[in-house]
Simulated assay, not measured.
Amino acid sequence: MKKLFGVLICGCLAGIGMPAFAQEETGIRFRKDAFSAVLEESAQSGKLVFIDCYTSWCAPCKWMEKNIFVNDTAASFYNTKFINYKIDMEKGEGPELRKRYGVQVFPTYLFVNGRGELVHKATSRMELQEFIEEGKKALDPSRAFSALEKAFAQGNRSKETLLAYAQALQRTDRNKADSVGRLLVAVLKDADLTTPVGWATIQSFAWDEEDRLGKYFTSHLNDYTKLYGAAATAKVQERLMYGALNALMRKKDSTAFFTRLSTWQRATDPALQKKALMMEAEYFLSAGDVKNFRRVTDSGLQGLLRNDDMGLGYIARRCEYLGEGNRPLLQQAHKLALRAVEIDPKEYSNQSTLAHICKDLGNKEEALQAAEAAYQLSLAETSKIQGLAKKLLDEIKQL
């Protein structure tokens, strides 16, 4: 009787115009109404609308939904401060809103007012505090994207404005972000680089050990560690190291490459050890060294990558791409892809990767089985993914 009473109450409330929500009982409460109704509520309440722009095939979108949107801290902040709305950019009103707000990547997060005007914009997967910080920026007239864009257009070139605008652009327009970032670096003096503004600039724009920011950071590493902590400086070091290793790989400087890589290989952090293994595999793959590629990836299968289907799948796809016609490489890629499917057989990309590799090897029966599994999984994805899966399945049937 209590359960029936509750159902009747909910039905009555919905019938008298209460906002409709998605089915989540916990986490951020997203409206299910038409966008016009959400804007009307925003105009009446004065609250901004937070819009999660996603697609069904977007892995970072799914990660945010699974890890951040359900978080109590995120939910408390967003449910209090915003009217929350989420929409698939490929269905219903999605394509129209995508065009209206220039959404190019997924996920994109829009913050709009009751008139539908864009106030703030950000993109990509985020950790909890970063996600909450974007909401705080939207609420701050001095830090919201639209305000920064207006200040820049009006000629404001202060260090603080350039930094905030460049950082905001990193989530929406990387080319323009780099352009504004170069303006910022040009106005910063060496004495500025250890200040909070300089440190934030290094955190956002230091990508190369050989450019001004990278060189200054490296030569003043102890100062940055004392001022901003070992954990924060380690992240910048890791990014610069990654860039240096890729540069050495392109130069085919094996001595310097493996000398630098040994730092990660000797690390106690398993995440760095895994990155070292992935980089080593990429090196041997790009060099066409089948023997050592097989040795490194076999080690990964037994250890660091044993339960990492994403890592295994990535290497397998790289192997197929770079090793076309090289049967020994494709056979190794098959081992990696097969293990990825064992770990998560319900992941579309795992089944699709295995099907492609089996097709290249001429293993029709196994290729067909994986392609059929990939096609069934694709039915929950976009029409584009479904089309690719169907095309692959048809090609294998014709072998």
Rank of each mutant, 00 (worst) to 15 (best):
residue 48 L to Y: 01
residue 276 A to V: 11
residue 371 A to Q: 13
residue 92 G to H: 11
residue 99 K to T: 09
residue 145 F to M: 12
residue 310 M to K: 12
residue 186 A to V: 07
residue 146 S to Y: 06
residue 241 M to P: 04
residue 350 N to M: 09
residue 245 L to K: 03
residue 182 R to H: 14
residue 157 R to L: 15
residue 34 A to H: 05
residue 268 T to Y: 02
residue 339 R to L: 00
residue 356 H to L: 07
residue 348 Y to D: 14
residue 156 N to Q: 12
residue 247 A to N: 00
residue 170 Q to N: 13
residue 210 E to R: 14
residue 390 K to R: 09
residue 228 Y to D: 12
residue 96 E to H: 09
residue 232 A to Y: 02
residue 365 E to Q: 12
residue 380 A to F: 09
residue 303 G to I: 09
residue 60 P to M: 05
residue 334 H to T: 01
residue 350 N to D: 13
residue 184 L to G: 05
residue 272 L to N: 14
residue 94 G to H: 01
residue 93 E to I: 08
residue 32 K to P: 07
residue 244 A to R: 03
residue 189 K to S: 14
residue 367 A to R: 04
residue 86 K to R: 14
residue 331 Q to N: 06
residue 127 E to C: 05
residue 113 N to Y: 08
residue 189 K to L: 07
residue 396 I to M: 13
residue 217 F to N: 07
residue 397 K to L: 08
residue 189 K to P: 01
residue 151 A to N: 15
residue 288 G to R: 11
residue 262 S to C: 00
residue 280 E to G: 10
residue 92 G to T: 03
residue 273 Q to L: 09
residue 180 V to Y: 05
residue 171 R to D: 06
residue 167 Q to T: 06
residue 117 E to P: 06
residue 4 L to M: 08
residue 41 E to W: 06
residue 97 L to E: 10
residue 59 A to S: 05
residue 181 G to T: 08
residue 321 Y to D: 11
residue 388 L to P: 01
residue 5 F to K: 15
residue 67 N to R: 14
residue 300 G to Y: 07
residue 221 L to T: 01
residue 137 K to E: 15
residue 28 I to K: 13
residue 327 R to H: 05
residue 266 R to I: 00
residue 36 S to F: 01
residue 28 I to V: 15
residue 278 M to R: 11
residue 249 M to A: 14
residue 91 K to G: 01
residue 207 W to G: 09
residue 194 T to F: 00
residue 217 F to C: 07
residue 56 S to V: 05
residue 160 E to N: 10
residue 112 V to R: 13
residue 290 V to L: 05
residue 376 Q to V: 03
residue 39 L to Y: 07
residue 333 A to Q: 06
residue 138 A to P: 10
residue 287 A to I: 00
residue 363 N to P: 02
residue 166 A to Q: 00
residue 127 E to G: 13
residue 32 K to H: 09
residue 299 S to H: 08
residue 90 E to F: 00
residue 183 L to H: 04
residue 71 N to T: 03
residue 306 R to I: 11
residue 217 F to V: 03
residue 386 Q to N: 12
residue 25 E to V: 10
residue 53 C to S: 12
residue 30 F to M: 12
residue 247 A to G: 05
residue 240 L to A: 02
residue 335 K to N: 08
residue 114 G to I: 01
residue 212 R to T: 07
residue 226 K to N: 08
residue 350 N to P: 12
residue 329 L to Q: 00
residue 281 A to E: 01
residue 66 K to E: 15
residue 376 Q to E: 13
residue 149 E to I: 00
residue 368 L to S: 08
residue 321 Y to N: 12
residue 115 R to S: 14
residue 86 K to C: 04
residue 333 A to M: 09
residue 177 A to I: 02
residue 32 K to M: 08
residue 213 L to A: 01
residue 128 L to T: 06
residue 182 R to I: 11
residue 373 A to V: 09
residue 352 S to G: 03
residue 257 F to T: 01
residue 370 A to G: 05
residue 69 F to E: 09
residue 166 A to D: 14
residue 324 E to W: 10
residue 236 V to Y: 07
residue 193 L to P: 00
residue 230 A to G: 02
residue 135 G to R: 03
residue 48 L to A: 08
residue 30 F to I: 11
residue 53 C to F: 02
residue 339 R to M: 03
residue 351 Q to D: 00
residue 267 A to S: 15
residue 92 G to P: 03
residue 93 E to D: 14
residue 254 S to H: 02
residue 50 F to C: 06
residue 285 L to P: 00
residue 199 W to M: 05
residue 221 L to N: 02
